[in-house]
């Protein structure tokens, strides 16, 4: 079975060439080449320098996202996420931001929806604290995508303990398990 075929029982690792693509099988998306799906699904790692002195905006933003997801748990559903990790880190006295996401659909597929969603949840408000973020992102999804692509730092190795399994499949499996437990309870 080749490495990109689904076999969740076998943990898998994938070494990725420089640049983030396999040159012989680059898939063309609507907004440019698509980064490959790996045993750790699709994902991105966006690294950008923040505008000096804006750290507090990021902490405030974290509280805002927490409240938004509490109020409407499916508000990020379109992104088909597994996990998001946001962090700030210093480099030579300056502060950088990393936004790392692991998800089940290539970002290009739902770009416009993501831009709309980012607007609705205020994710873009925090992006506005990054250097070089396009000010016209609202009317110009292409500029938004360009920023993301320019600041994407592709992986050179990804690993999955249960490779190629989507979040929806995991949720289905947990629901099935809960249903079996319920069934066993009812049989007592």
């Amino acid at each position: 079975m080749s490495k990109d075929q689904r076999d969740w029982t076998k943990p898998a690792a994938m070494a990725i060439p420089k640049g983030g693509y396999f040159p012989d099988k680059v898939e063309k998306g609507r907004y440019g080449p698509i980064f490959p799906r790996t045993p750790a699904c699709y994902g991105f790692s966006i690294l950008a320098k923040i505008i000096p002195g804006r750290e507090e905006a990021f902490y405030e933003h974290a509280r805002k996202i927490e409240a938004a997801v509490d109020a409407q748990p499916d508000c990020l559903a379109i992104l088909k996420l597994h996990y998001l990790r946001w962090l700030l880190f210093p480099v030579k006295g300056e502060t950088y931001f990393m936004y790392q996401g692991i998800f089940d659909t290539d970002f290009d597929k739902y770009t416009e929806d993501a831009v709309t969603l980012f607007g609705a949840t205020g994710i873009t408000t925090v992006f506005e604290n990054l250097e070089d973020f396009p000010r016209d992102w609202r009317t110009n999804p292409a500029a938004f995508v360009k920023f993301v692509r320019e600041h994407q730092c592709p992986s050179f190795l990804e690993y999955g303990e249960y490779p190629f399994v989507s979040a929806d499949e995991i949720k289905k499996a947990l629901k099935a398990k809960a249903s079996f437990s319920e069934m066993l309870d009812q049989m007592q």
Binding site: Y31, D104, K109
Partner: peptide, 20 residues
Amino acid sequence: LIRQFEFAQNVWVHDRNFHE
């Protein structure tokens, strides 16, 4: 075209994993 027609072709028609 990119947001409407191409999205429909790319995702709705050809995404093999549409709706899982």
